[in-house]
Design a protein around this nucleic acid. Structure first.
Lengths: 213, 213
DNA sequence: ATCAAACGTGACTGAGGTGTCATATTCAGT
DNA sequence: ACTGAATATGACACCTCAGTCACGTTTGAT
Protein backbone atom coordinates (compact mmCIF):
# COMPACT_ATOMS: atom_id res chain seq x y z
CA UNK A 1 0.00 0.00 0.00
CA UNK A 2 1.26 3.45 -0.81
CA UNK A 3 -0.25 5.17 2.19
CA UNK A 4 0.17 3.88 5.71
CA UNK A 5 -3.16 5.33 6.70
CA UNK A 6 -5.10 3.67 3.94
CA UNK A 7 -5.83 0.57 5.98
CA UNK A 8 -7.65 2.71 8.49
CA UNK A 9 -10.50 2.92 6.05
CA UNK A 10 -11.38 -0.57 7.18
CA UNK A 11 -12.53 0.71 10.57
CA UNK A 12 -16.01 2.13 10.25
CA UNK A 13 -16.60 5.61 11.56
CA UNK A 14 -19.92 7.42 11.60
CA UNK A 15 -19.80 6.79 7.89
CA UNK A 16 -17.00 4.79 6.35
CA UNK A 17 -15.89 6.42 3.11
CA UNK A 18 -17.54 4.99 0.01
CA UNK A 19 -15.53 6.61 -2.69
CA UNK A 20 -11.84 6.91 -3.41
CA UNK A 21 -11.94 10.59 -2.60
CA UNK A 22 -13.57 9.88 0.75
CA UNK A 23 -10.91 7.35 1.64
CA UNK A 24 -8.18 9.81 0.75
CA UNK A 25 -9.73 12.54 2.84
CA UNK A 26 -10.18 10.28 5.82
CA UNK A 27 -6.56 9.21 5.57
CA UNK A 28 -5.39 12.81 5.40
CA UNK A 29 -7.36 13.70 8.49
CA UNK A 30 -5.96 10.73 10.38
CA UNK A 31 -2.44 11.62 9.38
CA UNK A 32 -3.00 15.21 10.41
CA UNK A 33 -4.27 13.99 13.76
CA UNK A 34 -1.05 12.10 14.33
CA UNK A 35 1.18 15.10 13.77
CA UNK A 36 -1.14 17.48 15.58
CA UNK A 37 -1.59 15.29 18.65
CA UNK A 38 2.10 14.49 18.55
CA UNK A 39 3.18 18.09 18.38
CA UNK A 40 0.61 19.85 20.57
CA UNK A 41 -0.62 17.01 22.70
CA UNK A 42 -4.09 15.53 22.69
CA UNK A 43 -5.71 18.04 24.98
CA UNK A 44 -4.24 21.20 23.59
CA UNK A 45 -5.02 20.12 20.05
CA UNK A 46 -8.42 21.18 18.79
CA UNK A 47 -10.39 19.58 15.99
CA UNK A 48 -9.83 22.77 14.06
CA UNK A 49 -6.07 22.32 14.40
CA UNK A 50 -6.37 18.89 12.87
CA UNK A 51 -8.58 19.95 10.02
CA UNK A 52 -6.43 22.97 9.28
CA UNK A 53 -3.39 20.71 9.13
CA UNK A 54 -5.30 18.34 6.88
CA UNK A 55 -6.53 21.18 4.70
CA UNK A 56 -10.22 20.42 5.12
CA UNK A 57 -13.12 22.15 6.83
CA UNK A 58 -14.13 21.34 10.38
CA UNK A 59 -17.32 19.66 9.36
CA UNK A 60 -15.43 17.19 7.24
CA UNK A 61 -13.91 15.74 10.35
CA UNK A 62 -17.28 14.53 11.53
CA UNK A 63 -17.97 12.79 8.28
CA UNK A 64 -15.39 10.20 9.28
CA UNK A 65 -14.92 10.30 13.02
CA UNK A 66 -17.38 10.51 15.86
CA UNK A 67 -15.10 12.82 17.78
CA UNK A 68 -11.70 13.45 19.20
CA UNK A 69 -11.63 10.28 21.22
CA UNK A 70 -12.48 8.01 18.37
CA UNK A 71 -9.79 9.34 16.11
CA UNK A 72 -7.29 8.79 18.90
CA UNK A 73 -8.39 5.19 19.22
CA UNK A 74 -7.92 4.71 15.49
CA UNK A 75 -4.51 6.29 15.65
CA UNK A 76 -3.24 4.13 18.47
CA UNK A 77 -4.38 1.00 16.68
CA UNK A 78 -2.65 2.11 13.54
CA UNK A 79 0.57 3.03 15.29
CA UNK A 80 0.58 -0.24 17.19
CA UNK A 81 0.52 -2.17 13.93
CA UNK A 82 3.38 -0.07 12.64
CA UNK A 83 5.72 -0.66 15.56
CA UNK A 84 5.03 -4.35 15.81
CA UNK A 85 5.59 -4.82 12.10
CA UNK A 86 8.81 -2.88 12.23
CA UNK A 87 10.19 -4.73 15.24
CA UNK A 88 9.20 -8.10 13.84
CA UNK A 89 11.02 -7.26 10.61
CA UNK A 90 14.16 -6.11 12.39
CA UNK A 91 14.38 -9.19 14.53
CA UNK A 92 14.26 -11.87 11.87
CA UNK A 93 17.59 -13.52 11.43
CA UNK A 94 18.55 -13.29 15.08
CA UNK A 95 20.30 -16.47 16.04
CA UNK A 96 18.85 -16.67 19.51
CA UNK A 97 16.61 -14.80 21.88
CA UNK A 98 19.37 -12.70 23.35
CA UNK A 99 20.44 -11.50 19.96
CA UNK A 100 16.80 -10.82 19.16
CA UNK A 101 16.51 -8.72 22.30
CA UNK A 102 19.48 -6.66 21.24
CA UNK A 103 18.19 -6.12 17.77
CA UNK A 104 14.73 -5.41 19.06
CA UNK A 105 15.86 -2.83 21.58
CA UNK A 106 18.02 -1.06 19.02
CA UNK A 107 15.21 -1.08 16.48
CA UNK A 108 12.80 0.30 19.06
CA UNK A 109 15.13 3.13 19.99
CA UNK A 110 15.62 3.96 16.33
CA UNK A 111 11.92 3.80 15.61
CA UNK A 112 11.15 6.12 18.48
CA UNK A 113 13.82 8.51 17.37
CA UNK A 114 12.31 8.66 13.90
CA UNK A 115 8.70 8.73 15.10
CA UNK A 116 8.72 10.74 18.29
CA UNK A 117 4.95 11.13 18.10
CA UNK A 118 4.34 7.49 18.92
CA UNK A 119 5.34 7.90 22.51
CA UNK A 120 3.27 10.96 23.20
CA UNK A 121 0.13 9.78 21.50
CA UNK A 122 0.29 6.41 23.16
CA UNK A 123 0.95 7.66 26.66
CA UNK A 124 -1.70 10.33 26.47
CA UNK A 125 -4.20 7.80 25.21
CA UNK A 126 -3.81 6.05 28.51
CA UNK A 127 -5.74 8.77 30.28
CA UNK A 128 -8.31 9.38 27.62
CA UNK A 129 -9.37 5.76 27.44
CA UNK A 130 -7.35 3.23 29.36
CA UNK A 131 -8.63 0.36 27.27
CA UNK A 132 -6.87 1.67 24.15
CA UNK A 133 -3.63 1.67 26.04
CA UNK A 134 -4.08 -1.74 27.62
CA UNK A 135 -5.00 -3.16 24.26
CA UNK A 136 -1.74 -1.87 22.82
CA UNK A 137 0.50 -3.29 25.51
CA UNK A 138 -1.40 -6.52 25.85
CA UNK A 139 -1.14 -7.14 22.12
CA UNK A 140 2.51 -6.28 22.28
CA UNK A 141 2.98 -8.45 25.35
CA UNK A 142 1.25 -11.47 23.84
CA UNK A 143 3.67 -11.55 20.94
CA UNK A 144 6.59 -11.03 23.26
CA UNK A 145 5.43 -13.78 25.59
CA UNK A 146 5.24 -16.26 22.72
CA UNK A 147 8.84 -15.53 21.83
CA UNK A 148 10.06 -15.95 25.37
CA UNK A 149 8.16 -19.21 25.70
CA UNK A 150 9.81 -20.46 22.51
CA UNK A 151 13.20 -19.44 23.80
CA UNK A 152 12.56 -21.21 27.09
CA UNK A 153 11.60 -24.38 25.24
CA UNK A 154 14.72 -24.17 23.12
CA UNK A 155 16.81 -23.76 26.24
CA UNK A 156 18.02 -20.33 25.22
CA UNK A 157 16.93 -18.60 28.40
CA UNK A 158 16.46 -19.60 32.01
CA UNK A 159 13.03 -20.79 32.96
CA UNK A 160 11.04 -18.29 34.96
CA UNK A 161 7.85 -16.26 34.97
CA UNK A 162 7.90 -15.04 31.40
CA UNK A 163 4.84 -12.86 31.79
CA UNK A 164 6.48 -10.82 34.49
CA UNK A 165 9.59 -10.67 32.38
CA UNK A 166 7.64 -9.32 29.44
CA UNK A 167 6.34 -6.41 31.45
CA UNK A 168 9.77 -5.73 32.85
CA UNK A 169 11.28 -5.73 29.38
CA UNK A 170 8.60 -3.49 27.94
CA UNK A 171 9.13 -1.10 30.83
CA UNK A 172 12.84 -1.00 30.23
CA UNK A 173 12.48 -0.26 26.56
CA UNK A 174 9.91 2.36 27.24
CA UNK A 175 12.04 4.31 29.69
CA UNK A 176 15.25 3.88 27.75
CA UNK A 177 13.45 5.14 24.69
CA UNK A 178 12.08 8.14 26.51
CA UNK A 179 15.43 9.03 28.01
CA UNK A 180 17.86 8.25 25.20
CA UNK A 181 15.80 8.41 22.01
CA UNK A 182 13.48 11.29 22.86
CA UNK A 183 15.10 13.43 25.53
CA UNK A 184 18.81 13.35 25.06
CA UNK A 185 21.07 11.59 22.65
CA UNK A 186 24.09 11.86 24.92
CA UNK A 187 24.58 8.10 24.99
CA UNK A 188 24.87 6.20 21.69
CA UNK A 189 22.28 3.49 21.17
CA UNK A 190 25.13 1.00 20.97
CA UNK A 191 26.08 1.70 24.56
CA UNK A 192 22.51 1.40 25.74
CA UNK A 193 22.07 -1.88 23.92
CA UNK A 194 25.40 -3.21 25.18
CA UNK A 195 24.52 -2.39 28.76
CA UNK A 196 21.19 -4.14 28.56
CA UNK A 197 22.69 -7.05 26.70
CA UNK A 198 25.19 -7.50 29.50
CA UNK A 199 22.33 -7.48 31.98
CA UNK A 200 20.58 -10.22 30.04
CA UNK A 201 23.71 -12.33 29.67
CA UNK A 202 25.10 -12.02 33.16
CA UNK A 203 22.67 -10.22 35.44
CA UNK A 204 23.77 -7.42 37.68
CA UNK A 205 25.49 -9.59 40.23
CA UNK A 206 29.14 -10.49 40.11
CA UNK A 207 29.16 -13.96 38.63
CA UNK A 208 25.73 -15.14 39.66
CA UNK A 209 26.29 -14.94 43.38
CA UNK A 210 23.56 -16.19 45.68
CA UNK A 211 22.34 -14.34 48.71
CA UNK A 212 23.59 -17.08 51.05
CA UNK A 213 26.80 -18.39 49.55
CA UNK B 1 4.42 16.05 60.98
CA UNK B 2 0.78 15.17 61.40
CA UNK B 3 -0.24 16.20 57.93
CA UNK B 4 1.69 15.11 54.89
CA UNK B 5 0.64 18.23 53.04
CA UNK B 6 1.85 20.62 55.68
CA UNK B 7 5.31 20.88 54.17
CA UNK B 8 3.82 22.21 50.99
CA UNK B 9 3.26 25.49 52.74
CA UNK B 10 6.95 26.11 52.25
CA UNK B 11 6.44 26.64 48.52
CA UNK B 12 5.19 30.13 47.84
CA UNK B 13 2.06 30.53 45.78
CA UNK B 14 0.50 33.82 44.75
CA UNK B 15 0.34 34.40 48.48
CA UNK B 16 1.86 31.94 50.90
CA UNK B 17 -0.44 31.52 53.90
CA UNK B 18 0.42 33.74 56.82
CA UNK B 19 -1.85 32.35 59.48
CA UNK B 20 -2.50 28.88 60.81
CA UNK B 21 -5.92 28.89 59.21
CA UNK B 22 -4.44 29.78 55.85
CA UNK B 23 -1.94 26.96 56.04
CA UNK B 24 -4.70 24.50 56.91
CA UNK B 25 -6.83 25.64 54.02
CA UNK B 26 -3.99 25.46 51.55
CA UNK B 27 -3.19 21.95 52.71
CA UNK B 28 -6.82 20.88 52.34
CA UNK B 29 -6.94 22.22 48.80
CA UNK B 30 -3.72 20.45 47.88
CA UNK B 31 -4.98 17.20 49.33
CA UNK B 32 -8.24 17.59 47.47
CA UNK B 33 -6.30 18.17 44.28
CA UNK B 34 -4.51 14.88 44.74
CA UNK B 35 -7.65 12.84 45.07
CA UNK B 36 -9.51 14.77 42.40
CA UNK B 37 -6.72 14.58 39.83
CA UNK B 38 -6.14 10.98 40.79
CA UNK B 39 -9.75 9.99 40.42
CA UNK B 40 -10.92 12.10 37.47
CA UNK B 41 -7.65 12.86 35.77
CA UNK B 42 -6.02 16.25 35.42
CA UNK B 43 -7.94 17.42 32.39
CA UNK B 44 -11.40 16.30 33.36
CA UNK B 45 -10.99 17.73 36.83
CA UNK B 46 -12.09 21.34 37.17
CA UNK B 47 -11.01 23.80 39.80
CA UNK B 48 -14.54 23.66 41.10
CA UNK B 49 -14.23 19.90 41.58
CA UNK B 50 -11.17 20.45 43.70
CA UNK B 51 -12.67 23.21 45.79
CA UNK B 52 -15.89 21.27 46.28
CA UNK B 53 -13.87 18.30 47.47
CA UNK B 54 -11.92 20.58 49.77
CA UNK B 55 -15.06 22.28 51.03
CA UNK B 56 -14.04 25.81 50.09
CA UNK B 57 -15.21 28.35 47.55
CA UNK B 58 -13.66 28.62 44.12
CA UNK B 59 -12.05 31.93 44.86
CA UNK B 60 -10.17 30.43 47.76
CA UNK B 61 -8.21 28.30 45.37
CA UNK B 62 -6.60 31.36 43.84
CA UNK B 63 -5.52 32.65 47.22
CA UNK B 64 -2.93 29.88 47.27
CA UNK B 65 -2.29 28.70 43.75
CA UNK B 66 -1.78 30.57 40.52
CA UNK B 67 -3.78 27.97 38.60
CA UNK B 68 -4.28 24.38 37.76
CA UNK B 69 -0.78 23.86 36.48
CA UNK B 70 0.90 25.24 39.53
CA UNK B 71 -0.99 23.06 41.93
CA UNK B 72 -0.02 20.06 39.83
CA UNK B 73 3.61 21.05 40.07
CA UNK B 74 3.31 21.32 43.82
CA UNK B 75 1.63 17.95 44.00
CA UNK B 76 4.25 16.14 41.99
CA UNK B 77 7.01 17.60 44.12
CA UNK B 78 5.20 16.54 47.25
CA UNK B 79 4.51 13.05 46.00
CA UNK B 80 8.10 12.66 44.85
CA UNK B 81 9.34 13.36 48.35
CA UNK B 82 6.89 10.84 49.73
CA UNK B 83 7.96 7.95 47.51
CA UNK B 84 11.64 8.57 47.87
CA UNK B 85 11.35 8.79 51.64
CA UNK B 86 9.33 5.61 51.76
CA UNK B 87 11.68 3.65 49.53
CA UNK B 88 14.75 4.90 51.36
CA UNK B 89 13.22 3.78 54.63
CA UNK B 90 12.30 0.34 53.33
CA UNK B 91 15.73 -0.30 51.91
CA UNK B 92 17.84 0.38 55.00
CA UNK B 93 19.26 -2.79 56.41
CA UNK B 94 19.68 -4.48 53.06
CA UNK B 95 22.93 -6.39 53.11
CA UNK B 96 23.85 -5.69 49.54
CA UNK B 97 22.58 -3.97 46.43
CA UNK B 98 20.70 -6.96 45.15
CA UNK B 99 18.82 -7.34 48.37
CA UNK B 100 18.13 -3.61 48.29
CA UNK B 101 16.72 -3.95 44.79
CA UNK B 102 14.36 -6.64 45.99
CA UNK B 103 13.19 -4.67 48.97
CA UNK B 104 12.90 -1.55 46.87
CA UNK B 105 10.82 -3.16 44.18
CA UNK B 106 8.49 -4.76 46.69
CA UNK B 107 8.13 -1.49 48.57
CA UNK B 108 7.39 0.35 45.35
CA UNK B 109 4.70 -2.12 44.35
CA UNK B 110 3.14 -1.85 47.78
CA UNK B 111 3.31 1.91 47.78
CA UNK B 112 1.65 2.10 44.40
CA UNK B 113 -1.04 -0.29 45.50
CA UNK B 114 -1.81 1.88 48.51
CA UNK B 115 -1.48 5.18 46.62
CA UNK B 116 -2.81 4.53 43.16
CA UNK B 117 -3.07 8.26 42.52
CA UNK B 118 0.68 8.68 42.34
CA UNK B 119 0.93 6.97 39.00
CA UNK B 120 -1.81 8.88 37.31
CA UNK B 121 -0.86 12.30 38.56
CA UNK B 122 2.77 11.78 37.69
CA UNK B 123 2.20 10.42 34.22
CA UNK B 124 -0.32 13.07 33.33
CA UNK B 125 2.03 15.76 34.56
CA UNK B 126 4.37 14.69 31.80
CA UNK B 127 2.14 16.23 29.18
CA UNK B 128 1.13 19.28 31.10
CA UNK B 129 4.68 20.37 31.75
CA UNK B 130 7.44 17.98 30.86
CA UNK B 131 9.90 19.65 33.21
CA UNK B 132 7.89 18.57 36.25
CA UNK B 133 8.16 15.00 35.10
CA UNK B 134 11.83 15.12 34.22
CA UNK B 135 12.58 16.70 37.54
CA UNK B 136 10.90 13.80 39.29
CA UNK B 137 12.74 11.07 37.46
CA UNK B 138 16.02 12.86 37.39
CA UNK B 139 15.89 13.37 41.14
CA UNK B 140 14.94 9.75 41.55
CA UNK B 141 17.64 8.68 39.14
CA UNK B 142 20.37 10.69 40.85
CA UNK B 143 19.80 8.91 44.12
CA UNK B 144 19.60 5.58 42.39
CA UNK B 145 22.79 6.23 40.47
CA UNK B 146 24.68 6.99 43.67
CA UNK B 147 23.63 3.67 45.10
CA UNK B 148 24.69 1.74 42.02
CA UNK B 149 28.03 3.53 42.00
CA UNK B 150 28.56 2.57 45.64
CA UNK B 151 27.66 -1.00 44.86
CA UNK B 152 30.07 -1.06 41.95
CA UNK B 153 32.84 0.25 44.17
CA UNK B 154 32.10 -2.39 46.77
CA UNK B 155 32.21 -5.05 44.12
CA UNK B 156 28.58 -6.03 44.64
CA UNK B 157 27.57 -5.61 41.02
CA UNK B 158 29.29 -5.88 37.68
CA UNK B 159 30.78 -2.72 36.33
CA UNK B 160 28.85 -1.17 33.51
CA UNK B 161 26.99 1.96 32.47
CA UNK B 162 25.07 2.64 35.65
CA UNK B 163 23.17 5.55 34.24
CA UNK B 164 21.63 3.40 31.56
CA UNK B 165 20.92 0.78 34.16
CA UNK B 166 19.10 3.28 36.33
CA UNK B 167 16.71 4.15 33.54
CA UNK B 168 16.18 0.51 32.75
CA UNK B 169 15.43 -0.26 36.39
CA UNK B 170 13.05 2.66 36.76
CA UNK B 171 11.25 1.56 33.62
CA UNK B 172 10.88 -1.96 34.90
CA UNK B 173 9.44 -0.85 38.22
CA UNK B 174 7.12 1.53 36.50
CA UNK B 175 5.61 -1.05 34.19
CA UNK B 176 5.52 -3.81 36.77
CA UNK B 177 3.75 -1.42 39.09
CA UNK B 178 1.24 -0.44 36.47
CA UNK B 179 0.53 -4.01 35.51
CA UNK B 180 0.62 -5.83 38.84
CA UNK B 181 -0.08 -3.17 41.46
CA UNK B 182 -2.64 -1.06 39.61
CA UNK B 183 -4.27 -3.17 36.94
CA UNK B 184 -4.45 -6.73 38.12
CA UNK B 185 -3.30 -8.47 41.24
CA UNK B 186 -3.22 -11.88 39.60
CA UNK B 187 0.44 -12.37 40.41
CA UNK B 188 1.63 -11.99 44.01
CA UNK B 189 4.29 -9.36 44.55
CA UNK B 190 6.57 -12.10 45.80
CA UNK B 191 6.55 -13.76 42.41
CA UNK B 192 7.24 -10.50 40.64
CA UNK B 193 10.10 -9.71 42.96
CA UNK B 194 11.51 -13.23 42.69
CA UNK B 195 11.47 -13.09 38.91
CA UNK B 196 13.29 -9.80 38.80
CA UNK B 197 15.69 -10.89 41.47
CA UNK B 198 16.58 -13.90 39.37
CA UNK B 199 17.18 -11.62 36.42
CA UNK B 200 19.56 -9.50 38.48
CA UNK B 201 21.41 -12.50 39.89
CA UNK B 202 21.74 -14.55 36.75
CA UNK B 203 20.52 -12.65 33.72
CA UNK B 204 18.19 -14.18 31.22
CA UNK B 205 20.76 -16.37 29.55
CA UNK B 206 21.50 -19.92 30.56
CA UNK B 207 24.62 -19.67 32.63
CA UNK B 208 26.13 -16.50 31.23
CA UNK B 209 26.60 -17.79 27.71
CA UNK B 210 28.35 -15.59 25.20
CA UNK B 211 27.15 -14.99 21.69
CA UNK B 212 30.12 -16.79 20.12
CA UNK B 213 30.92 -19.74 22.34
C1' DA C 1 -11.68 45.97 72.64
C1' DT C 2 -9.88 47.52 68.46
C1' DC C 3 -8.18 47.36 63.90
C1' DA C 4 -5.67 46.21 59.87
C1' DA C 5 -4.37 42.43 57.44
C1' DA C 6 -5.40 37.93 56.02
C1' DC C 7 -8.73 34.94 54.56
C1' DG C 8 -13.17 33.21 52.49
C1' DT C 9 -17.10 33.73 49.31
C1' DG C 10 -19.74 32.71 45.06
C1' DA C 11 -21.82 34.94 41.24
C1' DC C 12 -20.15 36.37 37.01
C1' DT C 13 -17.68 36.77 32.47
C1' DG C 14 -15.14 35.96 28.69
C1' DA C 15 -12.37 32.82 26.04
C1' DG C 16 -11.99 28.55 23.90
C1' DG C 17 -13.62 24.71 21.63
C1' DT C 18 -16.91 20.84 20.33
C1' DG C 19 -20.31 19.30 17.47
C1' DT C 20 -24.34 20.72 14.18
C1' DC C 21 -26.58 21.91 10.03
C1' DA C 22 -28.18 24.00 5.91
C1' DT C 23 -26.02 24.56 1.79
C1' DA C 24 -22.69 23.87 -2.02
C1' DT C 25 -19.81 20.90 -4.69
C1' DT C 26 -18.05 16.61 -6.59
C1' DC C 27 -18.44 11.79 -7.79
C1' DA C 28 -19.80 7.75 -10.43
C1' DG C 29 -23.14 5.03 -12.61
C1' DT C 30 -26.40 5.17 -16.55
C1' DA D 1 -25.32 14.87 -20.20
C1' DC D 2 -28.08 13.67 -16.17
C1' DT D 3 -28.98 12.63 -11.44
C1' DG D 4 -28.98 10.95 -6.80
C1' DA D 5 -25.64 9.86 -3.44
C1' DA D 6 -21.55 11.05 -1.27
C1' DT D 7 -18.61 14.42 0.28
C1' DA D 8 -17.10 19.14 1.64
C1' DT D 9 -17.99 23.59 3.75
C1' DG D 10 -17.76 27.03 7.55
C1' DA D 11 -20.65 29.87 10.25
C1' DC D 12 -22.76 29.30 14.50
C1' DA D 13 -25.18 27.56 18.65
C1' DC D 14 -24.10 25.97 22.89
C1' DC D 15 -21.51 24.62 26.81
C1' DT D 16 -17.78 24.13 29.92
C1' DC D 17 -14.66 26.20 32.90
C1' DA D 18 -10.70 29.07 34.41
C1' DG D 19 -10.00 33.06 36.62
C1' DT D 20 -11.85 37.74 38.68
C1' DC D 21 -13.74 40.76 41.99
C1' DA D 22 -16.22 43.33 45.40
C1' DC D 23 -17.74 42.29 49.63
C1' DG D 24 -18.21 39.76 54.07
C1' DT D 25 -15.76 37.21 57.93
C1' DT D 26 -11.95 35.72 60.88
C1' DT D 27 -7.49 36.18 62.91
C1' DG D 28 -4.08 37.80 66.00
C1' DA D 29 -1.25 41.45 67.56
C1' DT D 30 -1.45 45.53 70.56
Amino acid sequence: MSNRYASAAAHPGPGAPKTARGARTRARVLKAAESTFGAMGYHRAGISDITREAGVAQGTFYNYFAGKEEILRELVRDMGHQVRARLAAEVVGARDRLEAEEKGLRAFLEYLHENPYLYRVLQEAQFVDESIYREYYEAFGRGYLRMLADATRKGEIRSGNNEVRVWALMGMSNFLGLRYALWEGDVPFDDVVATISDLFRHGLAIDGQERKP
